[in-house]
Amino acid sequence: MTAVAETPSPARAAAPARGPAEAVRWPALVAFGALLLRDARVLTRERWRFLIRTVSQPLMLVFVFTYVFPTIGQELRAFDGQASFSDILVPGVIAITMLIKGVQSVALPLVDDFGYTREIEDRIMAPLPVWAVAVEKIVAGALQGLVAVVVVFPIVALVPAEPVSLDISWGHLLAVGLLAPFVGASLGLALGTLVTPKQVPMMFSVIILPVTFLGATYFPWTQLEAIPWLQWAVLINPLVYLSEGFRMALTSLPSMPPAAIYAGLLLCGGLTAAIGLWGFRRRVLA
């Protein structure tokens, strides 16, 4: 113990108001930024893992449906054969990527944190309100969603056998591109605070699978006219608004009316964020 005794103690403590946080105007804001820095550090450390987890599903989807299928003569077309399947799938895959990223980057780590690791404890003790820690989770998740799309976009644009015909409307792309990752991350927060580690496999079967298959990713929502009950039923699925939003922003194919898309995005985002913040508080405070 002599080694310890000889070192001048940096841990010396005297009276209450010490440390730079006391001198900063908005310590909570500084803490918020530092939480983002921490997440960025973790992301760079786990970049390969991140890449693989981000790319694998979109790559498989695009490769099988838009390269293998048309090449072996098993082609799928839409709008009475007017549109190639890749034109349908591109917005869908981008939407799915954002949603899945929300689950991967927000929900799953939170389930572990609250379930057993309690690693988030130190961040909860950072000098900012508990709700702000939850908001940081959403922001970090949304940023990861954006990064994921940047990674995935070249894949969906280049892999298909038949060139993808994009028709970008920049205004919509900007708006949807900013809203969509927040919806994905908010859904991640809601799921992450509600689900226990044991329920994760169930969550995939009961929530994620139906959401991704019925999220207007593999078919345009407008074409569901043929199955009216389903066209109505899928409106509770947040992914529908992401897919239709990107369809509207990236292609010239018919989509859900813009007002409905934005209303859906805002409503789903707001609702899942509210549930997530409530759930987070419930898991953190007794």
């Binding site: 946080a21 001198a23 530092a34 820095l37 921490r38 550090r41 950072a126 000098p127």
Partner: peptide
């Protein structure tokens, strides 16, 4: 080291 470093950053240490 990072466990300590980021903790300090939460508390406005440069």
């Amino acid at each position: 080291r990072e466990n300590l470093h980021y903790h300090a950053r939460f508390f406005a240490y440069g």
